[in-house]
Simulated scan of single mutants.
Amino acid sequence: MQRPYDLPSLTALSCFEAAARNLSFKRAAAELNVTPAAISHQIRKLETDLATELFRRQHRGVELTESGAYLFLALQRGFEGISDAVRDLRLPSDAEDVVIQATSSVSAYWLTPQITAFWKQRPDISVSQIVSDTGQAAGRADLSIRYGEVEAGDGASVPLFRGDIIAVGTAAFAREHGLAEARDLRDVPLIHVMAEGTDWTGWAQWLDHVGLGAPRSRGMVVNNHMIALQLARDGVGAVLGWTGLIGSLMQEWGLIQLVPETMPSPHSFQLLAHPRATRLALVLRDWLADTARAGVIPAG
């Protein structure tokens, strides 16, 4: 009998999703309580099954290929739907688990190391993440991290970090295009992040802030800031980055500030406690707010 769904191993898909979200086999292994070798084996099996490479393996770590990014976004949507159904069916005894929603870039670059540090202090509180770049899953979360305005009725928010917005890329990209000041960016490939339900500051706003008109070059549009940064890392173009979010990762990723001009972020990244937030969720909220104010970024 033919299977109704054309799916590879669900174990392999789960390992791939964790590795893609963390951009690390090691962190995916820690999350799934297996060895990095097991993660690598499952992903190799998946790549063989699909006859395509999903990751580029480099000495600094791994990054998604175009096929990998396509599969990752599809899995995010599917896992969000499954998670919705499972949460609806769970017993009331699970109600005090804390659920926090963030975009993939905020989760990978800031939130996941924070939660790991929190668990070491409060192992009695179970924390689950909803990683969504659409914002559609926030309705079932106790807490959400958002960039931009918070709508009335969504709950009470506290600022986490703000920082400046800078133009980011590789040193090779800067040399290739002779980048010295902001006006040079108008004619080079730019990577734009546009995602439903988010309010990312874009190139038009950034260039306007530094006294320039709209970009004249053709650009690439993606709906995931993590993938946009990876494209910049590959030398595809320049992307905007928030110093409060990616500052500690730029050297690790081989990225530089391309031009000296900056734009103060018009919004802060905010931690929102929804009306349904439990007492334990508020414990995590206060802990995250305190560590953000202290500027603490635990090792991932």
Rank of each mutant, 00 (worst) to 15 (best):
A30Y: 10
S67Y: 05
H192T: 11
T201N: 05
A167H: 09
S93M: 09
T198Q: 12
L272V: 10
E66A: 15
V210I: 07
V150E: 06
A74H: 12
A289G: 02
G237Q: 06
S104G: 04
T278P: 00
P113T: 05
S40F: 07
D199A: 15
Q42T: 02
R77I: 14
W242M: 07
R90P: 02
T278G: 11
W200R: 14
L255R: 03
L185D: 03
P159Q: 08
V193K: 00
G178A: 00
D199E: 14
V188M: 09
F72N: 05
Q76A: 03
A117V: 10
E196G: 04
T198F: 12
E17A: 13
A228D: 01
L71V: 07
A18R: 09
A228I: 06
L75T: 10
E80N: 15
A156I: 12
F72K: 08
H274E: 03
D286W: 06
A294Q: 14
A292G: 09
D6F: 04
F79K: 09
H59V: 13
A182G: 13
E196F: 15
R175Q: 12
V150F: 08
R90C: 04
G235L: 03
E63S: 11
V259F: 11
S9E: 06
N223D: 14
P8A: 10
A137W: 00
R90Q: 11
D124Q: 05
Y70I: 02
G219W: 06
I256P: 00
V98C: 07
S217T: 13
D208Y: 09
P4L: 01
L46F: 09
K26Q: 14
